[in-house]
Structure formats: C-alpha cells, structure tokens
C-alpha cells in the first residue's frame, strides 16, 4: 500500500501460505502485479488459481497479468475485528469483479472511514499492493474517482 506502510513486525493479520498452484499469484503480488490463470482451451480466466480450469476442466493454463481494474460486486463494513485487525475497524471486505471476469475477495483502501454512504455496489476500483510483511503482499483495491 502506498503512503502508510506498517512496520513488518507490527503486522498481526493472518497470512496466506501458497500452494504450488497458487504460488505464481502470490509471487506476482509481491512484484506488484495482479496475475491470473487463463485457460488456453476455453480462453477464460479464473480465480482462485486451480490446477484445472473450473469452466472447461482443461489443464492447459497460462499466467497473465490482469488490468487491475474492477468493480465492487458486493461488500460489508466490518465492525467486529478478525484476529489481527483490531486497529483497522471498521474495514471494508469486498468481492471485486475484475475486468477480466473472475471475482476475488479483498479489502477497500480508503482515505475516509467507510460508511454505507461512501461505499457502493458497482463502484469502480483499481488494485493497490499492500506489502504487509517482507515476504507477503496482499492485493487490495482503491475506489477510482
């Protein structure tokens, strides 16, 4: 995340552990690229990354960088902190529909406190990268004005 990076030791949220089929996604995030698996047979992207295409079950998959643009498909404003999120409430958990089609869960990064008035379904967003530890970067999304 640009602007206000937390010191690595301070990060208390749960961290993902990559599996072989998701490793390129997390490697991409660390390099500040949003990577998606694409099916070379049916031509569709999918998320989360799997070892086979969930649309046509082909195993001919290739990784490509996504545009990072999308829309809020649905969201919540969480006031009950998950473990490690105590200093972040209220925070937005959103399902982002990416321009390429797949949807992914993430957080909205906002300058103001989120309220039902300033967050909306269908709001356009763009990816930002939050380097939460030296090893792990989480792709998050910022509203686009």
């Amino acid at each position: 995340m640009t602007g206000n990076p937390a010191p690595a030791a301070a990060y208390k949220g749960p961290l993902p552990r990559a599996t072989p089929e998701t490793q390129p996604f997390w490697d991409g995030a660390k390099a500040h690229k949003l990577m998606l698996p694409w099916c070379e047979d049916c031509g569709q992207a999918h998320f989360y990354p799997r070892a086979l295409c969930p649309h046509c079950h082909s195993v001919r998959l290739a990784w490509r960088q996504a545009s990072g643009r999308g829309k809020v498909h649905t969201f919540v404003i969480n006031h009950k902190a998950a473990r490690g999120f105590e200093d972040k409430v209220p925070y937005v958990i959103a399902v982002i529909e990416l321009e390429e089609g797949p949807r992914m869960m993430s957080n909205l990064v906002m300058d103001e406190t989120p309220t039902p008035e300033n967050v909306h379904v269908e709001m356009p967003v763009a990816v930002v990268f939050d380097d939460v530890t030296p090893e792990v970067t989480l792709p998050k999304f910022r509203p686009v004005r």
Binding site: K80, A82, K88, I93, M105, N107, V136, L138, K140
Partner: peptide, 13 residues
C-alpha cells in the same frame, strides 16, 4: 489464502 488475509473470518462477516 483468499479470505482470512482480508479480515474475513467468523460467521457475521
């Protein structure tokens, strides 16, 4: 990998 890191855990959330 794809829910918990975003503070999405627990039934109400």
């Amino acid at each position: 990998q794809f829910e918990a890191p975003f503070g999405a855990s627990g039934a109400p959330t």
